[in-house]
Design a protein around this nucleic acid. Sequence first.
RNA 1: GCGCCGGUAGCUCAGUUGGAUAGAGCAACAGCCUUCUAAGCUGUGGGCCACAGGUUCGAAUCCUGUCCGGCGUACCA
Length: 547
Amino acid sequence: MKYRNISNYFADALKKMGLEEIPEIAFETPKNADHGDLSTNIAMQLPKMLKKPPRAIAEEILQNIEADDEVIEKIDIAGPGFINIKFTPKYYSAELEAILNKAADYGRQDVGKGKKTIVEYVSVNPTGLLHLGHGRNAAIGDTVSNLYDWMGYDVTREYYFNNAGNQMNNLAKSIYARYMQIIDSPEFPFPEDGYHGDYIKTIAQDIVDIESDKYIAGSDDDIAALRKAGELWAFDKIKATLGRMNINQDNYFNEDSLYSDGKIENIINEFKNKGLAYEKDDALWLKLSEMGLQDDRVIVKSTGEPTYRLPDMAYHREKFERGFDVIVDLFGSDHIATIPDVLTGVKSLGYDTDKVKVLIHQFVTLMENGEQVKMSKRTGKNYTLDDLLDEVGEDVVRFFLIMRGINTHLEFDLDLAKEQSDKNPVFYLQYAHARLCSIFDNAIDKDINIDDKADLTLLVDKSEISLIKTLMKFPDYIRLSCDKGEPMILAEYLRDLAAAFHVFYHNCRIIGSEEKLMQARFKLAAATKITLKNGLDILGVSSPERM
RNA sequence: GCGCCGGUAGCUCAGUUGGAUAGAGCAACAGCCUUCUAAGCUGUGGGCCACAGGUUCGAAUCCUGUCCGGCGUACCA
């Protein structure tokens, strides 16, 4: 008794009308409830094929359709040719029963059964603390991973990082300068492009405290030791911050391993063997212009070091080799330019890049007192993700960072986030859950027995039906949210669900109603609690029992 | 210059891939608590969907052009 069957009724009717190829029949829930429970515009898609006006086609469909009275209460034509369907209470009670049976698994699907997916997110190099932009990446990435999990995929959550290279040298030099300023002279010069954040001073002080003047000479070994200390410190903090957001990734992939395992070497050779690479000005170029892109790009610099593109390609190839069916990359919009290069390169090696799903999210601006808080690396005064977690808590952070479409520039309103009140949208959802819990607490307090069986066809009030309808949509929204890589879709749905519940709660008393109706309403409340909890779990937001 | 993303209510944003009267939260205003949590519910006001053309039964949505904002456009990652 799902929409699929409804669609079959229509397909059969269209067959009887002599249509050979049955087009996809799209259903939607009308915005206006008076238009019925479900609506299709199929009659308006067919005038060209059938050479008849839409309304005439709709009438013909209605004559040919064999509707099941158990399921469909009413079916009629409206407006320019919409066909509107109204379901029976029995249909709804059966759907509600199904939700209760699935319980904690309600919403889980098997679309991805037997398939492996990897979601790469966060992936910041260990040179400092996470800021809000990273937080957005982390929250979206983790939610998308959860969505794939609920769709039945075997999900690997991966963090890709590089602890070598220029940025890390820069970190090492910055730490050395701060170290020398403490132990030797406050006048010791700070590097031009160094990391100005106060955390560098903290790292340096820690080293001074433990190892005193051990590294004062500043030899290559000393610098290497400081770099390692900085890396460990930063990684520790990053993982701790992610942990606070309930994010624990499965795998940390080190870019270095691509070199040590010969993967970089291999990919260079393969490009050469395929005649896709050539030397110019002492550098090695990839012939991207012959693969449909605008310009050729350098993959190995004249210094002998690869550019970032090469390890990126090798890394993607590695993901293919590990046998993933879906490869999700989540990047901030500043990485956008490199993606076509990397994908084109990997494709030229014979991999199916359609498996790669690149998600790009826009930046975050932090607003406080109506003004933008600058988050520049240079200023040193850096508003970190930890600062935000301290101020507003992990639930608010996770929710705020996914509640807008990933393609829109996110304005993070610190004042709104800090507000512990009805203005804060995340509490609206959590409050619904807390209210539900308190209904059941009350039943226990009052020694009310909750029957296992209840006559769910008694649920006929407008707000009851509306709530059931909303509950039924949950799996569809998980799928939609996953397909589009848009956690916001699920967040919006949960807001709708909470709203439908609040209206039901307001209109329909549970405890105190006539016994049979009360029992049916307990069931509805239980299904709502399950669905809300499952949805909040996917978003990584807690479901409090009391507020 | 070129590429990607965006421009919808006073503010922040949705808009189910072209459908019925363009929605929600916040802000403003007016109601609803002796009964399961008022962090809630109900109602009112608020729109040249950036602008100009085009495509068709039908456009916020698709196509072209223009304007505005963000991010890129390296032998930096």
